[in-house]
């Protein structure tokens, strides 16, 4: 195995696209090193992107934010602008693992690991985030939901890597939130996760909403029916119940060691409802 730590994006792309056999990007390493340790992956080349200056920064851009792919959860959590604009995204990122993991784990890594239970992904999808993908053929911008295609699989092509995550400008009177169910209070993989982002008009009627669920399908899913249940309402109890029911209906989970199918279906609705209530509060400026 080879270890390389290029200092430019171009250098990283060149390495990844080269004839190196199995290549893996190392950002925070909190998934990759575990997979190597447990013999699930044996890369021939590791490309450490943490020495690429542009990938270590959070930049305010066009009213939104550009988060470099090597920015850790802890750095994101300490960023005042992000905390104010997208608290749901920051909370989701900061739920991943321990303080120790937070010191390393990245949004981009969480996304590209393509776990259906990834905490930050429902929040990013709800927030309408996109990613900058860079590869041998240049850059493209892709909505977050198009990156994971199944457990452990992404739509990235050989030689491509995520350079940054783009958060849009936070619309006025909007709020986002992410909640998950875990049996302990920390350190677990989400049994269910729910991200909600919504916007109110001046009358307090919901004009836009995005709802995404984790750990209830082969990848994180967006739930248009749940969004429709909120839009046009004052996000009252009835609307929230309809949204919760839509979320439960959209689930196609499996039974596994972390939870049963029935439990996930039920709790997906509960969490989405609670997350929407928090998002609503935030949208109302509370």
């Amino acid at each position: 195995m080879r270890y390389e730590a290029p200092t430019t994006v171009k250098g990283a792309v060149k390495l990844l696209a080269g004839k190196a056999g199995l290549a893996r990007v190392l950002a925070g390493g909190t998934d990759l090193l575990v997979q190597m340790r447990t013999d699930r992956v044996a890369p021939d080349l590791i490309v450490d992107v943490k020495r690429i200056a542009g990938m270590r920064r959070i930049e305010a851009k066009a009213g939104g934010f550009r988060i470099g792919a090597a920015v850790s959860g802890a750095e994101l959590g300490e960023h005042k602008g992000m905390r104010k604009a997208w608290p749901g995204v920051v909370e989701a990122a900061c739920l991943i693992g321990s303080t120790q993991v937070q010191g390393r784990a990245t949004l981009a890594g969480n996304l590209c690991n393509a776990s259906p239970a990834a905490d930050s992904v429902p929040a990013l999808i709800a927030a309408g985030a996109a990613v900058v993908v860079v590869g041998p053929r240049g850059r493209r911008t892709v909505p977050v939901e198009q990156i994971p295609v199944g457990p452990g699989r992404t739509s990235l092509k050989r030689g491509e890597l995520v350079e940054a995550i783009l958060l849009p400008k936070r619309p006025p009177r909007s709020g986002d939130a992410y909640l998950r169910f875990i049996p302990r209070s920390e350190m677990d993989i989400a049994v269910v996760g729910a991200g909600v982002s919504l916007t109110l008009d001046r009358q307090g009627v919901c004009s836009a909403a995005r709802v995404a669920l984790g750990a209830v399908a082969e990848r994180v899913i967006r739930v248009p029916e749940a969004e429709a249940a909120l839009i046009g309402t004052k996000v009252d109890g009835e609307a929230l119940e309809r949204m919760a029911a839509s979320c439960s209906a959209a689930c196609r989970p499996i039974d596994d060691k972390r939870g049963t199918r029935e439990f996930r279906i039920k709790v997906a609705g509960v969490l989405a409802r609670r997350a929407a209530a928090i998002a609503l509060k935030r949208a109302r400026g509370k």
Partner: peptide
Amino acid sequence: NPGFLDYRIPVASD
């Protein structure tokens, strides 16, 4: 679940 991720012993915040 042969690991501390899914063999869930109490953590301080529990």
